[in-house]
């Protein structure tokens, strides 16, 4: 189990690094998909099977395909992205390392309070999540419809803008 965790973590981190540091956008997207699959693997390890499936379907399936589609549409894969000045990069990496060190030190400083004794097995199956989602969390579930409505309205408005402008 630990081995599996370590392998998946290594895969996650490496592919994440790959996303950030490759110039080619296509490679970047592909390694992001790898990263998402690795995280889905973690979910399986954590017995959150439903979320693992959703992760694969929504993220690796839908969102990343949307990304790839946009890349193709804009024809961005041809020219490699120009990079920011080196000094800026160093500063950015430094800042992020600092944040990381801060977070890790916080984790270790409060270690005895974070590490809990393991409890009875959990299983994030659909049968467990479903009632919760549609009983206790029914209202936020409905509220997400406002989110989607406004997203749809906005997308249509912006998307149709060019057409109307051309007509006139």
């Amino acid at each position: 189990m630990v081995t599996l965790f370590l392998v998946l973590s290594l895969l996650t981190v490496l592919s994440a690094l790959c996303v950030v540091f490759t110039r080619n956008l296509i490679y970047s997207v592909l390694s992001l998909i790898v990263c998402f699959f690795a995280i889905a693997g973690h979910y399986v390890l954590l017995k959150a099977s439903f979320l693992a499936v959703i992760q694969v379907i929504v993220y690796a399936g839908a969102i990343m395909v949307l990304f790839l589609f946009m890349l193709m549409l804009m024809n961005l894969n041809k020219k490699a992205e120009a990079s920011k000045p080196f000094s800026l990069k160093v500063v950015a990496v430094g800042v992020c390392l600092l944040v990381l060190v801060a977070l890790v030190s916080i984790v270790f400083l409060s270690a005895p309070r974070v590490c809990f004794a393991p409890l009875a097995p959990v299983s994030g199956s659909v049968s467990a999540l479903g009632p919760l989602l549609f009983n206790e969390y029914a209202i936020p579930f409905e509220l997400t419809s406002i989110l989607f409505l406004s997203a749809v309205a906005g997308v249509v408005m912006i998307g149709s803008y060019g057409k109307k402008a051309k007509k006139q």
């Binding site: 950030v20 990496v93 977070l103």
Partner: peptide, 9 residues
């Protein structure tokens, strides 16, 4: 935290 910081970077 590592993945988050890589993303931030």
């Amino acid at each position: 935290a590592i993945v988050f910081c890589i993303g931030l970077c």
